[in-house]
Design a protein around this nucleic acid. Structure first.
Lengths: 196, 196
DNA sequence: AGAGTTGATGTCAGTAACTGTCATAACCTG
DNA sequence: CAGGTTATGACAGTTACTGACATCAACTCT
């Protein structure tokens, strides 16, 4: 059963080469050009060579097309937290998590910048981004609890790390040169700890 | 000018006694009974004795009907931060802000509990709540900056305070007896500061 | 090779969230 | 009382989604 499924997944690129990727690229293009609200789901579908119905089979709603990588980031964050040394404090472990998550963006700075501009221009997209970040915090808190961190420390440390990630990411996107996001995260974490 | 506006506001209760309040109450009722998605805007309007169009003139969208007090909370939070003693640290000032904001809920525990249950049951409503909390953090950071706090400290302190508010509010809602939310905020703030 | 199965897609009809426009009635101001 | 403002109703239109059914290609099994 698992064999069949895997074979199918590997095959996916044959019948229609990367229809999903085409929709994502088309959406980014159109959102950047005309804006999110001025782009209909039908526009994206047409531009990607599929029907509107197919678009909604791939993405739960129009906004989701911009948040394709977020599951991966959640997974990586979780794994990094669980892999952190057991002596690490909850906050340190959570920061290691979001640093690993942020590492996924390192090679895609141009895409991240473009995407951020689109999201910043639309409150509905900001809402979805906030939901994804909240989901990341929930996952991080869960991982911390598995490491033995009690509540409310797990939630507080997880949420603090996500806050650091948000601020550091914004600074990284605003930069001219393409430093590693991890550097910004470390700086921002230091600033957070310095708060009294 | 301000006089005319105020006269109107005070008069509002005459022509149609509290149409807005009726819509809010009807929405809470229906959301709690059937759920958010199973309730149409038309249902709420009808139940409040107005047209669907009137509903959308009062609320930007179906979700907004649950977030009527959030502007007040933002304003109170801002004012408390600006009123905090100038010796107070950014984090202390921000915490004073959210404590004052949370004070608005003290006398409406039953309503807050009911509302929380509705929101918790629906991701779309959670998104909106997160947007409101993010707005609160932005306002708080703004107020801190007016007090002279530089970035990124203003944003970090503001966001930390909002995180404390979220956790404390969740605990306050889950409690059986109705303590002051300020007590929970203080406890949670202490836990945050104890993180290393 | 041929029949049945599975997975992605197209087609089409339907619901509900909004939005724009115009008309009306109550109120306020002068 | 005339004129402007404000809240509303009535109605038409767009778009985000959803469900049901048909198709078509690849894969499985025999």
């Amino acid at each position: 059963m698992s064999v069949t499924v895997n074979a199918r997944i590997l095959d996916m690129s044959r019948w229609e080469p990367d229809a999903r990727g085409r929709m994502i690229r088309a959406a980014m293009e159109l959102f950047a050009e005309r804006g999110f609200e001025q782009t209909t789901a039908g526009d994206i579908a047409e531009s990607a060579g599929v029907t509107e119905r197919t678009f909604f089979r791939h993405f739960a709603d129009k906004r989701e097309v911009l948040f394709d990588g977020s599951e991966d980031m959640r997974r990586v964050t979780r794994e990094a937290i669980l892999a952190a040394p057991s002596e690490a404090s909850p906050l340190d472990a959570a920061l290691a998590g979001v640093t690993a998550g942020g590492g996924l963006l390192k090679d895609r700075r141009a895409h991240a910048v473009r995407r951020s501009a689109i999201i910043e221009a639309n409150p509905a997209l900001q809402e979805r981004e906030l939901l994804k970040l909240a989901g990341m915090a929930v996952t991080a808190a869960e991982a911390l609890r598995e490491r033995g961190t009690p509540e409310p420390d797990a939630t507080l440390a997880a949420q603090s790390a996500v806050t650091v990630f948000q601020v550091a990411f914004a600074r990284w996107v605003a930069e001219d040169d393409a430093a590693d996001p991890a550097a910004r995260i470390a700086e921002t974490a230091a600033a957070l700890r310095a708060l009294r």
